[in-house]
Write a protein that binds this DNA or RNA. Structure first.
Ligand SMILES: [Zn+2]
Ligand SMILES: [Zn+2]
Ligand SMILES: [Zn+2]
Ligand SMILES: [Zn+2]
Lengths: 181, 181
DNA sequence: AATGTAAATGATATAACATAACAAAATGAA
DNA sequence: TTCATTTTGTTATGTTATATCATTTACATT
C-alpha cells in the first residue's frame, strides 16, 4: 500500500512525494496503453510537471518550466498537452483558480467508461494552496437527487470548495505550512 | 407573488422578463439602502444589463453594451461595477464560464450577515445557455458534512453543474430553445 | 525501403479576460 | 466651504487561451 499522500495530502506535508509522481506516471502509462492512447514524451513530461506538487499549476507556469528545458515553447504546446491529459482524466482543471492539478484518483475510477474522464470535486486550502480531490457518497447522492428532481441531465460538474485545511486552521498564523508544494 | 421566472427560468421560456428585471433592481436598491452602500447609476445600469436575461454574461459583453450607450468605456469600469455587485451578492460569477449572472435569490438570504454574499450553486444548460441558481438542503448538508469530517473550514463554494435542462432534453435537436436570453 | 495517412508538434498571431496605477470628479460630512 | 472619501475615468499592461497554418513524426501499407 502506498503512502498516505495521495489519499490526504493535507495531512502529509512531509511525505515522500517522489512516490506520488511515480505512481501518477505509472498509472498514466497504464491507462493510455489500455485505451490505445499515446502518452508521448511531451505529454508525459507535462504530466510530470503538473505533479511537481499538490498545488494547482497555471498553464503559463508549465510553459515557463518547459521553456527552461527546451528553449522556445509556445502556449499551444502546453494547452494541447493539458487538453489531452484532461480528456484522459489524468489532470483536472480547477475553474476557480484557472489552474491544473494531477488527478488524485488515477487508476481507481468506478465511473470510467472507456475514457478516463470523471467528475472531480475538490477541497482547496487558501492558506497552503494544496488542493485535494475528494469523493463523497452523500455529495454524489445530493447532486443526482437534485438533478433528477429538476429533470436536469448533468454532463459536467464543477465543485470546488475553498477554505482552510485542518493543518492551516491549527496554525492560526497566515503562512504556508503544507510545504509539499 | 411574482411570476415563476426567478424560481425556475428553465420552465418559463416565455415569461414576462421585465418583472424579473424590476424585481432585481428593486431588491438591489433595498439591499444597498439597508446596508448603507451606494447603488450608483453606473452600478445600477450594469446590474440591469446583467439582468437582460437568465444567461451568464461576459464582462466584455457588458463593456460593449455600455460603450454603445456611453461611448468610450474601459474594462476597469465594468469590472469595478461587477466587483461591487458581487460583493453585495447581487451578482454571481460563474467560474466555469468566466461570466456573470444576476443573483436568483436576492432579498431572501438566510445566511446573509450584513453583507449580501452567499454561496451560490448553479445548474447551467449547455443547450439554451440558461443558468439557474439552486438551493438544496441535502447538497448543503453533504457539503458541511464532508467538510466537517475533513476538518476543513469552507470559505467559498464553487458549485456549477452543467448539462441539459428538462426542456432542452425534450427537444432532442441541438438548438437554443429557452429563448429568454 | 518507399509511400501514404493521420496524429502530433512547431510557430505566429491574436483573442478574451482581468488588473495595476494614477488622475479627475463626485459625494457627503464637518 | 473645506476636507476626506468614494467613485469614475484613463492609460497601460498582465494573464489566460485559441485560431490557423506549416512541419514533423509515427506507423501502417505497398
Ligand atoms: Zn505527493
Ligand atoms: Zn480525478
Ligand atoms: Zn426572467
Ligand atoms: Zn445568489
Amino acid at each position: 500500500m502506498a503512502n498516505q499522500t495521495v489519499d490526504n495530502p493535507f495531512a502529509a506535508p512531509g511525505h515522500d512525494h517522489r512516490s506520488c509522481i511515480v505512481a501518477a506516471l505509472d498509472a498514466a502509462e497504464a491507462a493510455c496503453a489500455r485505451r490505445g492512447e499515446r502518452l508521448t514524451p511531451l505529454r508525459r513530461r507535462v504530466l510530470e510537471l503538473v505533479w511537481r506538487g499538490h498545488r494547482p499549476v497555471g498553464a503559463y507556469d508549465l510553459l515557463a518550466l518547459l521553456q527552461d528545458e527546451r528553449g522556445r515553447v509556445a502556449p499551444p504546446t502546453v494547452y494541447r498537452a493539458l487538453d489531452f491529459l484532461c480528456t484522459q482524466g489524468l489532470v483536472h482543471r480547477l475553474e476557480s483558480l484557472q489552474a491544473f492539478i494531477g488527478c488524485g484518483h488515477t487508476g481507481n475510477h468506478m465511473d470510467d467508461q472507456g475514457d478516463g474522464r470523471h467528475a472531480a470535486h475538490f477541497l482547496i486550502c487558501q492558506d497552503c494552496g494544496v488542493a485535494v480531490e475528494i469523493r463523497d457518497g452523500q455529495l454524489d447522492g445530493a447532486i443526482s437527487g437534485l438533478a433528477g428532481r429538476a429533470g436536469f441531465a448533468i454532463a459536467d460538474e464543477t465543485i470546488e470548495l475553498s477554505g482552510l485545511c485542518a493543518a492551516c486552521r491549527n496554525q492560526s498564523v497566515s503562512r504556508p505550512v503544507c510545504t509539499t508544494s
